[in-house]
């Protein structure tokens, strides 16, 4: 199987003055088209750095990222990011926030009317069309994150990068949004890479879970396949043996073998 997204021997060393910290070491990962992969690890293990490297917002010290066999090292709409804190521009309406990306990406390929329709199509996908003229400060946290997802989807990315997308939400909203993302993945078949620190979320959503060891010099400790059929139903899985086994594996990795050591 050919790799769609390939992380090739990525090392990342931060240098501050004379001090150097190796954050990531020898990260190798291949992701297939349409796959949903989660990266899980304790905070500070460099998973957000890894996402930033893939997004092109930071450069790897050595190694690189290949998307469809071409190296990518600067940010671009082909790797759209859904940020943890939604990062909607507060002076633009919901519609304008999505339109900003659409206008850039489809400047030449879509007419004005087509771009407008495309924005509304994506807002409809996340059920936010009703709030098109609202500003981010007027909608709830979950709604903001939906708009963030719509903005990313509207750029038609080859890979959708989710940076702890549900981290800032309350449990009920989070579950609701997870279901939405699952449905979107089912419907659109995107390739998705998600950073998370929530074990249930990782098992529920992913095809594969990449578990990272603790930093500094974090590596990929283990990759777990989640052989659960889609569409998955949250309630059915609660008692599903495979689900529980996967969950157990991740928990063991995080809390037994690579317990989080508080840097004192």
């Amino acid at each position: 199987m050919t790799a769609y997204l390939k992380l090739d021997h990525i090392d990342k060393i931060f240098t501050r003055g004379a001090a150097t910290t190796e954050v990531l070491k020898e990260i190798n990962l291949t992701i297939e088209k349409g796959e949903y992969v989660s990266i899980i690890g304790h905070s500070g293990c460099g998973k957000s750095t890894l996402l930033n490297i893939i997004a092109g917002l930071t450069n790897a010290t050595t190694g690189g990222v290949l998307l469809e066999n071409r190296e990518v090292n600067s940010p671009g709409p082909d790797r759209a990011v859904v940020f943890q804190n939604h990062s909607l521009l507060p002076w633009l309406t919901v519609y304008e926030n999505v339109r900003l990306g659409v206008d850039k990406v489809f400047a030449k390929t879509k007419s004005r009317a087509e771009r407008d329709a495309w924005v509304m199509h994506n807002l409809n996908l996340v059920q936010m069309a009703h709030a098109r003229d609202k500003r981010p400060s007027e909608i709830s946290g979950g709604m903001k994150q939906r708009v963030g997802i719509a903005r990313a989807l509207a750029m038609e990315p080859k890979v959708l990068l989710l940076d702890e997308p549900f981290g800032a939400l309350d449990a009920l909203t989070r579950a609701h949004l997870q279901d939405s993302v699952m449905a979107l993945h089912q419907k659109l078949g995107n390739t998705i890479l998600m950073i998370t620190h929530d074990v249930d979320e990782a098992v529920l959503l992913s095809d594969r879970i990449v578990m990272m060891t603790n930093g500094p010099s974090a590596r990929i400790g283990e990759v777990l396949e989640v052989p659960l059929a889609r569409p998955r139903k949250r309630l059915d899985l609660a008692t599903n043996a495979t689900y529980l086994k996967c969950r157990q594996r991740v928990l063991e990795f995080l809390y037994e073998r690579h317990r989080f050591v508080e840097a004192a």
Partner: peptide, 27 residues
């Protein structure tokens, strides 16, 4: 200007002029 807005601009690939008008001045 929050780094988040700069990241958004980078992902969307705004050019410097658009960044000035659409992000910098309002922010």
């Amino acid at each position: 200007i929050p780094q988040d807005y700069r990241n958004v601009a980078a992902v969307v690939q705004l050019n410097p002029l658009e960044f000035f008008a659409k992000i910098m001045i309002p922010a």
